[in-house]
Amino acid sequence: MIRAAIAGLGRWGRNLVEAASGHPRLKIVRAVEPDIKAAQQFCSQHDLELTADLDPVLADDTIGAVLLATPHSLHPAQVIACAGARKQIFCEKPLALTHADAARMFGACRDAGVMLAVGHNRRFWPSIRALHETLASGQLGTILHVEGHNSNENSQKITSGWRLSPEESPGGGFTGAGLHVLDAFVSMMGPVERVYARLRQRETGPPPLDTAVVALDFVNGVTGTLATVRATPFYWRVHLFGTDGSAEVLDETTMILRKSGAAPQRLTYPATDVLRAELDAFASAIENKGTFPVREAEVLATLSAFEAALQSMKSGLPVQCQNLQENAGQHGR
């Protein structure tokens, strides 16, 4: 049994605790949350020992892993501290807000001999897994273009806190919802070469109202477009266009397959507990000393494109992605 601690008991941290409940190989036993009063009842319900800071967890030799669901800006220092204490690490996305910070974090974990798993949970959707398999089968032919959209109304419920900070969430809804689509793109198409992005902020809020639109040129010649609306009912779409067909994912369990001369096929896959599957993969990678499905090169390539998009939003001009040679060389590792 892997004894673990969770840092950050906001909405998502609590979701992770509940997903781990009763897990046969991973047991969350401690929690780190500065707002002790707000977290006491939840910790009592889930039998978690509660502390206000990370140091006691790092000093606890019975804790083998730490899950981080904290503000993005805290991730670099926390990951490096956990690596120094030889803890296996699961960190929610975005791992960092810059490619340089993320590379430093992976380096610290590699030097310490511990895992750094990044929580891009949409990778575990049954429909996204089916999309990867469809792409790998070659039945779509040569991929020419990819389109994606991710919007949700979560921001309508957020009227204070770090998620409203431009420093923590640059690029509006692109940092939260849009990054899921960018990760899906990179996992299938590889590194991005050039980005042209626009952010339109209608109201600062709370709740904030903004839209982001991103055009991407991938190293392999594929083009892409991505959009996110910060305050609208949930909508998800990732659509691959190839010379012999197209495949479009619309939610966790639905994919539309289109071929010339044939009616579109609507394929539905059995639903799964996505966060539980993500934690299963984390536990398996620890036990088997293997790799987590979200690979280092993909995380770094995604953050290179993310940084370029933020720069483009400020300048109004296309921006070349950095670290292309490194990302292109490592992709697929």
Rank of each mutant, 00 (worst) to 15 (best):
R200K: 12
S284K: 10
D273V: 06
R202H: 14
A83R: 06
V274D: 04
E133T: 04
L317Q: 15
N154P: 02
A297H: 08
E49S: 12
Q330K: 13
A20S: 10
A100Q: 09
D217N: 08
A308E: 01
C82Q: 04
T211P: 08
D61H: 15
T134E: 10
K259P: 13
S137V: 10
S284I: 08
P166H: 04
H75N: 14
G113I: 02
L95D: 11
L58A: 08
L199K: 10
V146I: 08
A81N: 07
R295C: 04
G178P: 03
W125F: 12
K93E: 06
A281M: 03
L257D: 11
F282V: 07
H145T: 10
I63H: 05
V57D: 09
H132G: 14
V195C: 02
R198N: 14
L182M: 03
Q330C: 09
Q139I: 14
I6H: 00
L199M: 09
F90H: 09
V319F: 02
P191R: 06
E326N: 12
M115Y: 04
R30I: 15
G138D: 00
R129E: 09
R258T: 11
A5P: 11
V195E: 04
D61Q: 13
F174K: 04
L267A: 00
P71E: 01
P191K: 06
N327H: 12
E203N: 15
C321K: 07
L68E: 03
L116P: 00
L300W: 00
S151P: 15
Q201K: 15
M313G: 05
E307T: 13
G161K: 04
Y235T: 12
A81R: 10
T291D: 13
G242E: 01
G329F: 15
H132I: 07
Q325Y: 07
M105P: 13
G113P: 05
K87E: 02
G173K: 03
L275Y: 12
A297P: 08
S21L: 15
I36T: 15
R11W: 10
L209C: 11
A309E: 05
A81C: 03
Y235M: 14
V32S: 06
A212H: 15
L164V: 01
T62G: 10
A277M: 09
